[in-house]
Design a protein around this nucleic acid. Sequence first.
DNA 1: TGCGTACTTGCGTCATTGTGCAAGTATACC
DNA 2: GGTATACTTGCACAATGACGCAAGTACGCA
Lengths: 133, 133
Amino acid sequence: MTQVRTKPRTPTPRQAARRKAPVDRLLDPAFFKALCDPTRARMVACLVKCGVPCTVSAIAGCCDVDLSVVSRHLKILETGGVLSKIKKGREVVYTVRADDLAHRLRALAAEIEVGCAGCGCPGTGSKTGCCPA
Amino acid sequence: MTQVRTKPRTPTPRQAARRKAPVDRLLDPAFFKALCDPTRARMVACLVKCGVPCTVSAIAGCCDVDLSVVSRHLKILETGGVLSKIKKGREVVYTVRADDLAHRLRALAAEIEVGCAGCGCPGTGSKTGCCPA
DNA sequence: TGCGTACTTGCGTCATTGTGCAAGTATACC
DNA sequence: GGTATACTTGCACAATGACGCAAGTACGCA
């Protein structure tokens, strides 16, 4: 199913840590931090299921925390690149950055497959086998 | 590029929150929590770049924290479904669950696109437009 | 059986983060 | 201009999490 690209490899973790690779950027902790809180995850899931941009008040309606907390969480999600924010009069409308997110997630999936393919480890779908017996 | 599937939609966030959808499971905070710490992110990036299963000691060589801290972080990554662990004698070997991760990330990307497509919001690549003016 | 290596766990400390309340800012409407 | 609505920010507090050290467990080897 997945076509594996060229596969740079570094024998030891110490050496691997020095080498720069796209996966370093894709594993940006700020992005994952944005989604690691249950309240924030619920808010994003809510926006995805809703399918339309929503105001802060509307989003607050789907979680049982104070409006100020919702406002702060939305800011964190915006900083993490998950949501985008548009001011419309006195309302603030938040939207899921769907294209960016999907692109980022797929790129990360590809990088992980490229890095781990061919080592014959369980769960990598490889056949060659490079793990110590 | 992306073929959009059927697109369930719920007008308000409050209603959307009640409706169960795959995105709820895919946005599991435990998974994102595993990757939200800089040290853990570096460890995973290191394993991906390295391309082979590594022992706890070897992984500790690529980050400047105590071995006990590394051991704890690896456990969190295993719990979050990022790594798998195999005991070999007195060594413990950790492997990136590449197939699972790639599958999960792609599934999430697809769900986000399905949920957000067609609303005409910036960053969704849609043309129809359902956002309030 | 004793010893060394590899890893895990208990404990205390410090920093970060999630939360609610209250006050503040910005915008629309009368 | 005054008031209501929508959201943000300051502050205090509790909970969580990352960390190092030290002690403990598991396993291989002589």
